[in-house]
C-alpha cells in the first residue's frame, strides 16, 4: 500500500513537471545540444554543406592560437566581476538604507526599481545618447564639475569603453538585485534587531553582526544569478560598441556572435559558446559548494 502510494506520488510529480520539461527540452535543450555538437565540427554557413565530421578540436585550437578566446575570456571576467561586485555592494547598502523608516521610503523604493522596466535595447540607446562624446550630457556634466578637462569619447576609448558598458549594465541590473536583497532583509525578524538594540549595539554593529550574516544565503543566490545574467549581457554590448574599439569590449558573447554571424563560422561560434557554458557551469558548481561548506 505504502509503495503503491509512493509510486502514485512519483507519477503525479512527474506528470506535473512534464509540461515545463517538454517546453524547455524541445526549445532550449535540443538546440543547445545541437550547438555544442557543432563546436566540434567544421561548420560554416553554406549551401550544400558536405557531411560534417569531427575535427579534432580545430575550432578550439584556432581560438586559442589566435588569442581571441583568451582576450574575450579575460574581458568577460573583468566585466562580470566588476559589475557583480558593484551590484552586490550597492544593492546591500541601498537595501539596508531603504529598509529603515525614513520619509518617502516607499516612493524611493519604487523609483529605484525603474531602470529594470526599461527594455535592454532602449537602455543601450539611452546610454549611448548620454555618453555621446560631442553633445552627450555626461561629458558636459563632468566638465562642469571639473572632473574632466577634455570631452572623452567613452565608447570609442580603449580605457573607457568597457567601464562605460559596465555602467550601463549595472544600471539595468541593479533593481533586480536590489529587490531580492530587500526581500531578504524583510524576512529577518525585527525582534533580533530590537534585542540587539537593547544590548546597546550601534547601527554598524547591527549591520555587520546581524544583517550581513543573515543575508548570506540571499547574497549567495543573488551573486549566482547576476553572474549568469552578466555573462548573457549581449545586446547591450553589441549595440553600444560592437565589441570595439580594438576588441576592448569583445566579451565571449560578442566573440561567439562575431564568429557565427560575421564570419559565418558556426563551428567556431559554437566552440566559444561551449567554453562559456563550461565556465559558467564550473563556476556555479564550485561557488555553490564553496559557499555551502563554509557555512557549516
Amino acid at each position: 500500500m505504502v509503495t503503491r502510494l509512493r509510486v502514485r506520488d512519483e507519477f503525479f510529480g512527474l506528470a506535473l513537471i512534464l509540461p515545463a520539461s517538454l517546453i524547455v527540452g524541445a526549445l532550449i535543450f535540443l538546440p543547445v545540444a545541437q550547438s555544442v555538437a557543432m563546436g566540434f565540427v567544421d561548420y560554416t554557413l553554406r549551401r550544400n554543406q558536405d557531411g560534417v565530421s569531427w575535427n579534432n578540436f580545430a575550432n578550439f585550437v584556432y581560438l586559442i592560437e589566435t588569442g581571441e578566446l583568451w582576450n574575450s575570456w579575460r574581458i568577460t571576467l573583468l566585466f562580470v566581476i566588476g559589475v557583480v561586485t558593484a551590484l552586490i555592494v550597492a544593492a546591500v547598502a541601498m537595501a539596508i538604507a531603504l529598509n529603515q523608516r525614513i520619509p518617502g521610503q516607499r516612493l524611493l523604493r519604487s523609483v529605484v526599481l525603474l531602470p529594470w522596466v526599461t527594455p535592454t535595447m532602449i537602455a543601450a540607446l539611452l546610454w549611448m545618447w548620454i555618453l555621446q562624446p560631442q553633445y552627450g550630457v555626461a561629458n558636459f556634466l563632468l566638465r562642469r564639475v571639473g572632473m574632466i578637462e577634455q570631452p572623452i569619447s567613452w565608447l570609442a576609448s580603449i580605457q573607457w569603453a568597457l567601464p562605460s558598458v559596465m555602467v550601463a549594465s549595472f544600471w539595468r541590473q541593479f533593481p533586480f538585485v536590489f529587490i531580492v536583497v530587500l526581500a531578504g532583509l524583510q524576512s529577518i525578524p525585527v525582534e533580533l534587531y530590537e534585542s540587539a538594540m537593547i544590548d546597546g549595539a550601534g547601527f554598524s554593529r547591527r549591520v555587520f553582526s546581524i544583517t550581513i550574516p543573515l543575508l548570506r544565503n540571499v547574497i549567495r543566490v543573488v551573486i549566482l544569478m547576476s553572474v549568469i545574467q552578466s555573462f548573457r549581457q549581449f545586446p547591450l554590448v553589441w549595440t553600444m560598441t560592437g565589441g570595439g574599439p580594438i576588441d576592448a569590449t569583445e566579451t565571449l558573447a560578442v566573440l561567439s556572435y562575431k564568429q557565427s554571424f560575421v564570419n559565418l563560422n558556426f563551428g567556431r561560434g559554437s566552440a566559444v559558446a561551449t567554453v562559456w557554458l563550461v565556465t559558467v557551469l564550473v563556476f556555479s558548481v564550485l561557488f555553490t559548494r564553496l559557499v555551502r561548506t563554509r557555512e557549516y
Partner: peptide, 14 residues
Amino acid sequence: FLELTKIAQMVTIG
C-alpha cells in the same frame, strides 16, 4: 572591413 577599422583605431586612439 572590421580589421581595417581596427588598424585605423590602432593608430588613432590606440
